[in-house]
Design a protein around this nucleic acid. Structure first.
Length: 136
DNA sequence: ATTCTGACA
DNA sequence: TGTCAGTA
């Protein structure tokens, strides 16, 4: 199947996403309300995030850490969605380059997560299960 | 055990 | 944003 299709495949649970992004569930839900992401839902109304969602979330995170507010992040992601390049001062913040998280970076994150021994018998099994579908 | 929505001493 | 409540 097409790569874009794979990247939009609903795979991850809230728990997995919060561990992958280091964001709190509160933040993830809030960003969704702001229209920054639109994860799919299970029959039980549970969110199912795609690779793209995680990617965007990480993007949002780095932007916010640079002092950009929701309005600013919203504008930047919106323009990037339109294919435009966000260079800097559209917002009341610091100059933002091109923090677009690369797939390589995302894979590294996932790999570390899967290999992390400190995270004892946690839910790596869960993550593996979710990813197995992606790598099918 | 997890996640969800709504609400605010 | 945190957090507690009452569900599904």
């Amino acid at each position: 199947m097409r790569d874009e299709t794979r990247r939009n495949m609903p795979l991850f649970s809230m728990g997995t996403v919060t561990k992958l992004t280091e964001l709190t569930p509160r933040q993830v839900r809030y960003y969704e309300q702001q229209g920054l992401i639109r994860p799919a839902r299970t029959n039980g109304n549970q969110r199912l995030f795609s690779f793209n969602d995680v990617d965007r979330l990480l993007h949002v995170k780095t932007l916010m850490e640079k002092g950009v507010n929701i309005a600013g992040v919203k504008e930047m992601l919106q323009k990037e969605d339109q294919g435009e390049t966000v260079s800097a001062e559209v917002v009341e913040a610091q100059p933002v380059k091109k923090p677009e998280i690369s797939e390589a970076e995302l894979y590294k994150l996932l790999k570390r997560q899967l290999a992390d021994p400190s995270a004892r018998s946690n839910q790596n099994h869960l993550l593996r299960g979710e990813l197995s579908r992606f790598f099918h």
